[in-house]
Design a protein around this nucleic acid. Structure first.
Lengths: 349, 349
DNA sequence: GGCAGGTGTGGAAACGTTGTCACGTGCAAT
DNA sequence: ATTGCACGTGACAACGTTTCCACACCTGCC
């Protein structure tokens, strides 16, 4: 009720934000006491606390995060870098991360690199500038992780690993998943399985390639190297190259190592009016909605994407609180979901 | 070369971050000059600037964003709140926002509410605490926008409008899009068109409902109110209710007002083995990949989702720089994409 | 020789918060 | 009566940056 100012609330001009000092003055205490009351650390008498809380509520006090971060030298904002939010895989990863962070009282700052190492590095620099306690990313180049590690920022790599510095990571068993999927096709009798992978040194695709080879080795089938198609990220000619693989490699099945390649492969097959699985089989990696909706459904190695995000967030928060514990690797298990797109090869082949 | 400290770089313990004062000391200037050189404001002699930049580079200086924000009373981090990153619509919106912001030198802080007003409000409070210059959101309740406006934070509403305070917004022509889609079905001869909308006061769904009614009025067809199904957000019984509409309303076509409802409707139709469009037609609102992939493809009102996000970011940045200009409404045009799921009703109906 | 004006610089005060420290109180035990 | 302790409190100094402001140095001009 003690009117400090005659409430010059001009709707147009934003009024000066209320600070801790305002609260303290209004409640007749010092800023220190106000800080203790509102942050809940240190001694405050119940009556003082109550009054301060009431005043803060009445004045609509919102603490200044920058001042707090500056003083405490760390924030509650975790950095997240993904390649492309438009891709459901990354979007769901981000959704999982965000949810887990929010439940733990942290916030997520999301930046995209377009799978470009320099944009990733810029993102890392931003996070250092913000004094983020940690960063979760699907790494593209090694520089970002290195910079963050050098600055003492905890890093968790998701989906792929490529840090040359020790850090936590969350991946799925790429090799196992690909091996199972390839074995599934080999069991059906396929001997010429085209593999579509991304042309990078990403561990995810490398693992899927290893799984493909391992399954062949298990079955005693020699791999025709011409059946392995390495496609650069965002290659506009991807579908054309897949078409050429069909023409020149004569595969009876295709295994696409990610959801984008699966979609592109599917488009090519449809345009050629090839019946699935009668004329050719298709298996994907990473389940997305359309795969269950098309007819026939696409057999796919399904990843617990949202859970991967949540695990990453948990790992990060653990490290933030326990900086010196040994780097941990969480490897989740994918699951082969068999749908209609995979079956025996055409007779006579 | 002037060794300040004997480089006690312990790999485990992160070294103290380098500050402006370090740069200044190393370069033999004051912090003021260093600040001017690195931020590019004010007079600095070329030689001093060059030396400072070199030192900063050498020491790996990263400015402390909190200190800057604290001093300048504003940051370059724009808040974004969407309902659910797992939904492609929101993910693409966010992707568009992020891209436009990044190009303008801003960052995006992304928070999810699960379409819950209180989580949205919490997000708003976080953004106020961070001194975000502005916030972009797909609003759920009015409180968040009100709080932000009261604190002088610029707000842009995307997809839906529900602020009772003036603010910019980006929407598509929901009424026009729905009208076109409904007219498309009416032109085919449908007289009993089921409408699936979200049971909220969101302007998006209200507009789509208006368009549905308008098209009927245009065609001189009376609307049977029992054909309008209002489904709460995240209703687990949604598909069951759609099934009941089919049984009790006997529609010859369904118009689903968003991509989630379209997916659910499609699931129901498929489970019942109803042929599209022979036995029933389906039209959606908001194009997502599966709609072009299923057989037949889904006729849909397509929104320029990524562009909406980019426009929202542009509007926000304009307002941040021109706080007093009149609130602007950007209304984008959707486009009817006719695919195979819509056709004439079964003969005899 | 003084003075205007451009050019470059450094001192110092913010910005809002937190945490240390010292200093009260009372009250009980020595 | 002094200590010791638990409880509360307020001054004050950070945190790292920006931005006034004042000042010093030039050059050229009356």
């Amino acid at each position: 009720m003690t009117a400090v100012e005659p409430s010059d609330d001009v709707p147009g001009l934003p009024r000066r934000p209320v600070t801790l000092a305002d609260i303290a003055r209004e409640a007749g205490t010092s800023a220190s006491t106000a800080s203790r009351a509102l942050s809940g650390r240190g001694y405050v008498s119940p009556v003082a606390r109550d009054r301060l809380l009431a005043v803060a509520e009445r004045l609509g006090y919102v603490p200044n995060a920058s001042a707090r971060t500056l003083k405490q030298k760390t924030s509650r904002v975790v950095g997240v870098v993904v390649s492309d939010l438009g891709n459901q895989f990354y979007a769901r990863l981000a959704a999982g991360i965000e949810q887990a962070l929010r439940e733990a009282g942290y916030q997520m700052m999301l930046l995209g690199d377009n799978s470009e190492a320099d944009e990733e590095l810029a993102a890392a620099r931003t996070f250092v500038a913000m004094r983020a306690p940690g960063v979760i990313m699907t790494p593209v180049g090694g520089d970002a992780t290195r910079l963050l590690a050098a600055q003492g920022v905890a890093v968790v790599e998701v989906d792929r690993q490529l840090a040359d510095v020790p850090c936590d990571s969350v991946v799925i068993d790429n090799e196992g998943g690909a091996r199972t999927a390839t074995a599934h096709l080999l069991d059906h009798g396929h001997r010429r399985i085209g593999l579509l992978v991304v042309e990078t040194d990403w561990t995810s695709d490398a693992g899927r390639l290893r799984g493909y080879r391992a399954a062949h080795a298990d079955a005693g089938v020699e791999v025709d190297e011409r059946l392995i198609l390495r496609i650069p990220f965002h290659d506009p000619a991807a579908e054309e190259r897949i078409g050429r693989l069909l023409d020149e490699g004569a595969p009876t099945a295709l295994f696409a190592a990610n959801n984008l390649l699966a979609e592109q492969a599917w488009n090519v097959l449809r345009r050629r009016r090839l019946r699935l699985p009668g004329e050719i089989s298709l298996v994907g990696f990473d389940d997305v909605p359309w795969m269950a909706m098309v007819e026939p459904g696409i057999t796919v190695v399904s990843q617990p994407t949202v859970e991967m995000g949540m695990r990453a967030a948990e790992l990060l928060l653990r490290r933030v609180e326990q900086p010196l514990s040994a780097p941990q690797l969480a490897c989740l298990q994918p699951e082969l979901v068999v749908r209609g797109s995979s079956g025996p090869p055409p007779v006579g082949l």
